[in-house]
Amino acid sequence: MQLKKQLIKFKNKSLGVKIVLVLFFLFFAVEVFCHLFPMFFAINNSLKTAEEIYESKLALTTTWNFRNYIDVFDKFKIQGGIYFETMLWNSIWITMLYLFSNLMSSMLVAYALARFNFPGRKFLFGFMIFIQVIPIIGAGAASWKLKYALGMINNPATIWISWAAGFDYSAFILYGTFSSISKSYTESAKIDGAGNFRILGKIILPMAFPAIVALFVTNFVGQWNNYEVSQLVLNKFPNLAYGLYIFQMPAIWSNAGENIFYTVLVVSMIPGIVLYLSMQKLIIKNISVGGLKG
């Protein structure tokens, strides 16, 4: 139906516009090929046997070797005897711990700045913008030194505190969402006797829920693929991304076989793609950035 509408619209356009639209369509088609080919390449090789890959990486699979997806549990391992399921579990808890601590803290900051008038509000808002637009480079070493001194390295019980940055990009996005909710909701709730906790929990958060979910998904994708966290501060808990970085060296995967190498690539990209694609519209609708004026 929508396609029909679009075609009718297209027919009614002038020749110049038609040419521009066709050129853009061709450009997008080429881009689709460029984006899908690497994925197809990995998926195709993940369904081959090691011998098939040796013969040709580009030929289509003939064996459809789905067994690779079972073998990955036994064969994907890195130094220290760490297997796929351990890395998967590490990815899950590191991602969740990061998301929970970071989003909670950002939510608190954004809510306070967007909904209340208090001394220092303008300063804190300015500070939030300052962090976004003024780059401070090279603090990583000092940050690592502090975490080491505080015993946070390889310590999941405390490392989350360093991730709970409230004045960050997420707070900036949530600030926009909380500001856009009409103040009349909270005013009428207050008249009805609702306290601040109730207003936050029963009115504001449910109304901002789509934006929070959108942020959750985008941050999930970023954190799921974050190898730096395992390489720098949690190297006793390698996640899938870091495991993959180690495993991609031919000397490591050669024992498992190149088919397992491609299977691992495909498996680790599934959660991000599935989660994002199922929430694409929600994310685009709810993540907006605009205007740095307070």
Partner: peptide, 27 residues
């Protein structure tokens, strides 16, 4: 203006979704 914009957008998001380790390894 484009027919199938949801499909296009989903495909174009893939490199960001699969992460730098997977994408760079394939490339």
């Amino acid at each position: 203006h484009m027919v199938g914009s949801t499909f296009f957008r989903a495909v174009f998001a893939i490199p960001g979704l699969v992460g730098v380790v997977v994408f760079s390894t394939i490339m």
